[in-house]
C-alpha cells in the first residue's frame, strides 16, 4: 500500500509547526502518531500534499501536575499516559483508558493530541476526559485558546480545531482525593476500538453519592456526558439499587450509533451494562 506523494516537513517546535501550517495551507495534514492518518493515506482516502510531522516536538510531550491541574501534552503517547504515575494517581480512569487503546506498538506511537484532533467517535479518551471536565489547549496564529472538551468535539470526525491550529495540551483538575474513577470498555473485536466505552468518576460521602460524572465514548457521533445518569446518582444512597435505576437513563435522547458490530438497540443496551459496571467499580 502506497500513499500519494507529499512533501514532508518536520516541526521541531510548536512555533515551527504553526509556521509550516500557515505556509502549507489547506493541503497540509498534521502527522502525530500516524495510526489513523497513515493507514487512511495508504488507502488513498486521505491525500495531503504536505505532511507536517509534530511527533518529534519535545515541548508537547509531557505529563505533569501544576497545582491542582493535571497537564497532558498533546504529544504524550498512550504508553506515556498509561505508565505515568501522575495519571495513575491523579486520574486513574485516564491511565486505564490509555492502556486499553490498540495494542502495545500502537500505544507507543499514538498520541493524545492525535486522538482528539481525529475525533473518531469510537476513540477511547473522550469518555474519560469528559468525565474529568477536561479542557483542550490549542495554539494558532492568534495565540492560545482553551476550549472545554465538550465544546471542542463537534461531531463525527469534526472538532472546533481551526485548520491553522494545533492541539498542544489537555488539562483537567486532578481527581479529588475521595473520588474514584474507572473506564470500562466493550471492544470492537477486529479493530479494538470501543463499541461502548464508559468512564465514571464518583465521590461517595458517608454512604451518599456527593458527586458523579459519567461519560460515554463510541455510543453516539461524539462522546457525551450522561447527565441524566449523573443527576439520578447525586445525593442518593451509594447502593446497587441507585446504580441500576440511574443507568436506565444512559442513552435517553441520544441517537445511538449502529454498525455491523452493534445495532443501535444493542449498543444502547451495552451502554447501560457498561455504565453499571463502571459505577459498581467505583461506588
Amino acid at each position: 500500500m502506497i500513499t500519494t506523494a507529499f512533501s514532508y516537513h518536520k516541526a521541531g517546535t510548536v512555533a515551527d509547526a504553526l509556521k509550516l501550517l500557515a505556509e502549507c495551507g489547506d493541503d497540509a495534514k498534521i502527522l502525530a502518531g500516524g495510526h489513523s492518518l497513515i493507514p487512511a493515506m495508504k488507502l488513498r482516502l486521505n491525500q495531503p500534499e504536505h505532511l507536517i510531522d509534530i511527533s518529534g516536538i519535545s515541548e508537547i510531550r509531557y505529563i505533569r501536575c501544576e497545582g491542582n491541574s493535571l497537564r497532558v501534552g498533546a504529544g504524550a503517547t498512550h504508553a506515556d499516559i498509561a505508565n505515568s504515575s501522575d495519571v495513575q494517581s491523579h486520574m486513574p480512569m485516564l491511565a486505564e483508558t490509555a492502556a486499553l487503546i490498540g495494542d502495545p506498538a500502537v500505544r507507543n506511537k499514538g498520541t493524545m493530541g492525535g486522538v482528539l484532533a481525529h475525533a473518531d467517535p469510537a476513540a477511547d479518551y473522550p469518555a474519560a476526559l469528559l468525565a474529568a471536565d477536561a479542557e483542550v489547549v490549542v495554539q494558532g496564529p492568534g495565540g492560545e485558546r482553551i476550549i472545554a472538551l465538550e465544546n471542542f468535539l463537534l461531531g463525527l470526525f469534526d472538532t472546533d480545531l481551526a485548520e491553522n491550529e494545533i492541539i498542544v495540551e489537555v488539562r483537567m483538575n486532578i481527581s479529588p482525593s475521595n473520588a474514584k474513577s474507572t473506564y470500562q470498555k466493550f471492544m470492537q473485536p477486529a479493530s479494538r476500538y470501543a463499541i461502548v466505552g464508559c468512564a465514571a468518576m464518583v465521590t461517595v460521602d458517608q454512604g451518599r453519592i456527593s458527586d458523579a460524572k459519567v461519560a460515554f465514548s463510541s455510543v453516539a457521533e461524539k462522546a457525551f456526558r450522561a447527565r441524566e445518569v449523573e443527576n439520578a446518582l447525586k445525593g442518593q444512597e451509594a447502593s446497587e439499587a441507585t446504580i441500576k435505576a440511574a443507568v436506565k437513563n444512559a442513552v435517553n435522547g441520544v441517537e445511538v450509533l449502529s454498525d455491523h458490530f452493534a445495532s443501535s438497540e444493542y449498543r444502547g443496551h451495552l451502554a447501560k451494562v457498561y455504565a453499571e459496571r463502571a459505577l459498581k467499580a467505583v461506588i
Binding site: 500516524g34 495510526h35 497513515i38 510531522d53 495494542d103 506498538a105 500502537v106 507507543n108 506511537k109
Partner: peptide, 29 residues
C-alpha cells in the same frame, strides 16, 4: 496488512516496539 493491525512488521525503534508499516522512513532519521 494495510491497517497497522497484523503486527508482522513489528520492529523496535529507539527501544520501543512499533509497527514499521505505519511510520515513514523519514521519521526514523
Amino acid at each position: 496488512c494495510d491497517t497497522s493491525s497484523c503486527g508482522a512488521c513489528t520492529i523496535h525503534m529507539n527501544g520501543e516496539a512499533v509497527k514499521s508499516c505505519t511510520i515513514l522512513a523519514v521519521q526514523a532519521d
